[in-house]
């Protein structure tokens, strides 16, 4: 068995791949680590997408958070959003800003005593959407470097393409989410683009991501895999 693994680059690749993949998985499944990376991710998402949509506030928060509060212009507003959905780690809220401003105005003028929010909440998994595809990418690259002849430039291209793909997918998800949010003001983006985003959003399941990453990896590194296999004569 050990001999076979030593002699076969494919067996070696599979072994290293799974070792790497499982290590990353166990690392990210650790509760403390999970809480800290998801909190950082939410902070990054909130700062990057703060002004992504007109007249709406973007707020990504942990799914475990059952007392979510929106800090807005010195006001602390409870979102009253406590539903926890299994397999999802993040709740993305889009809050109607123009409606909120009007409510705050009413509050200031003593026309009302409470604030009602118009918002759209969306369940999201950072783990499935970003961490898993990236762990596949890292495992492929580590196994490739240890087993096959490699070109740094091609591995870098693979990584850039995969990261670009994930960012593109996330933006499509956001557009799809925004176009379905009837609680917000009408979305100004072209209707055709909105319906395309909603359609292709359905594609983005885990299998799709894994296969696209594999195709990108194979396309970029096919020559080096072939060269190694030919020189090994296995």
């Amino acid at each position: 068995m050990r001999n076979h693994i030593n002699n076969s680059p494919i067996a070696k690749f599979i072994l290293i791949f799974f070792l790497c993949y499982l290590t990353i998985y166990y690392l990210f499944c650790n509760n403390n680590f999970q809480n800290s990376y998801s909190a950082k991710f939410h902070t990054v998402l909130n700062s990057l997408f703060d002004k992504f949509f007109d007249n709406s506030i973007f707020l990504a928060e942990s799914m475990k958070n059952n007392s979510s509060v929106l800090n807005y212009k010195s006001y602390k507003i409870s979102l009253g959003n406590s539903e926890v959905i299994h397999n999802y780690d993040t709740r993305i809220n889009l809050i109607n800003e123009s409606f909120l401003l009007q409510q705050l105005e009413d509050l200031r003028n003593n026309r009302s005593t409470t604030i009602t929010l118009k918002m759209h909440s969306y369940k999201f998994s950072i783990f499935s959407f970003f961490i898993l595809p990236l762990s596949i990418l890292v495992s492929l690259i580590v196994s490739h470097v240890l087993v096959f002849k490699y070109k740094f430039k091609l591995l870098l291209t693979t990584s850039v393409l995969v990261i670009g793909l994930l960012i593109f997918q996330f933006i499509v998800v956001l557009i799809s989410m925004r176009s379905q949010a009837i609680e917000l003001d009408p979305y100004a983006l072209n209707k055709g683009i909105q319906s395309i985003a909603v359609k292709i959003h359905n594609l983005f399941h885990i299998e799709f991501n894994f296969f696209v990453i594999m195709i990108i990896y194979l396309t970029c590194n096919f020559k080096s895999i072939l060269l190694t296999l030919q020189s090994e004569k296995v």
């Binding site: 791949f17 799974f18 898993l132 894994f210 296999l229």
Partner: peptide
């Protein structure tokens, strides 16, 4: 989510290489 999805991509890739 983790095991079988990874299995299928590796299997198809290495079947083709084989």
């Amino acid at each position: 989510i983790q095991f079988w999805q990874a299995y299928f991509i590796l299997f198809t890739m290495f079947y083709f290489i084989n």
